[in-house]
Nucleic acid binder design. Structure first.
Lengths: 142, 142
DNA sequence: TGGTATTTGCAATGGACTTGCAATAAGAAG
DNA sequence: CTTCTTATTGCAAGTCCATTGCAAATACCA
């Protein structure tokens, strides 16, 4: 079972929501998945594990988890779909994706703190988020 | 008329393509538009100018211009659509977008050269592109 | 264990973008 | 300037990711 589960359930209850079998299944899948996954991938992998869940429910579940701040939604360049990853316990990071095989790897660095200050000065915006993604060829596809 | 036009026409002819009235119209609109525009926006603005063009043709046109390397395609975070801007004569840059009003501003800096080297060492990927975007509140929406 | 509000599944819908095909028009040749 | 070939356009239909409406199922508190 999930270590996170009791906390998450509390989180859900605090907003009048319930911990259901399908939400557990999605959380559990996200927890054991390394790469960010799309709704369709969640749907397919759960079906492989004989978990009955509708694709609509997957979309609604990741949406709720995102609202609770438990999940991050990624929109990688020109993929035309969203991917999701557990935020719980993870540090701020970015990604690099292989243009050939689609493999996605985490980048544990973020070089943007100073730049953010600079941009706020230059533009008078208040910056509250950024997205950064690299694309290229992974070692296997070179 | 467009200063770019003769060059672009040459470009088109070199790949067996033609300079048409609709392509001129799209190019001309892109040239006078500051912010990156979506296909639908191109469609609507041209119709305001009484230029008859189908939305499909807009999509096909920006696709061709992108193939020729004249146009950049941007997929800003969670917008769910693509935007396009003329590449011609412009330096590499990034964008910041206001979460309230959607205004997009250019950022003329790019802090990623050194980071790219580092990432290539760390991951063994060959990096060939990156996307970087900031979101926040513009001065008017704060 | 029952009652009620949340959640789910199914079907239908929405929005961005693409594709097939016949009609139109660019532009090279005469 | 006219003709001819071939690229391009417009329209209709289709695809893909995602959302919405609603009745049936189910979490969970009393």
């Amino acid at each position: 079972m999930l270590k996170l589960e009791p906390n998450i359930k509390k989180n859900l209850r605090a907003t009048g929501r319930r911990m259901t079998r399908t939400r557990q299944a999605v959380l559990s899948l996200l927890q054991k998945t390394r790469q960010p996954v799309s709704a369709t991938e969640i749907f397919e992998r759960l079906h492989q594990e004989k978990v009955a869940i509708d694709l609509v429910t997957v979309y609604r579940t990741v949406h709720v988890l995102k609202e609770l701040g438990l999940v991050l939604q990624l929109d990688l360049h020109q993929e035309g779909l969203s991917r999701y990853e557990l935020k719980e316990g993870r540090k701020h990071h970015h990604h690099i994706r292989c243009q050939i095989c689609g493999q996605i790897e985490d980048l544990l660095l973020c070089p943007l703190k100073k730049v953010t200050k600079l941009i706020e000065q230059q533009t008078q915006f208040i910056v509250d988020d950024h997205t950064l993604e690299f694309t290229g060829l992974c070692p296997q596809c070179q």
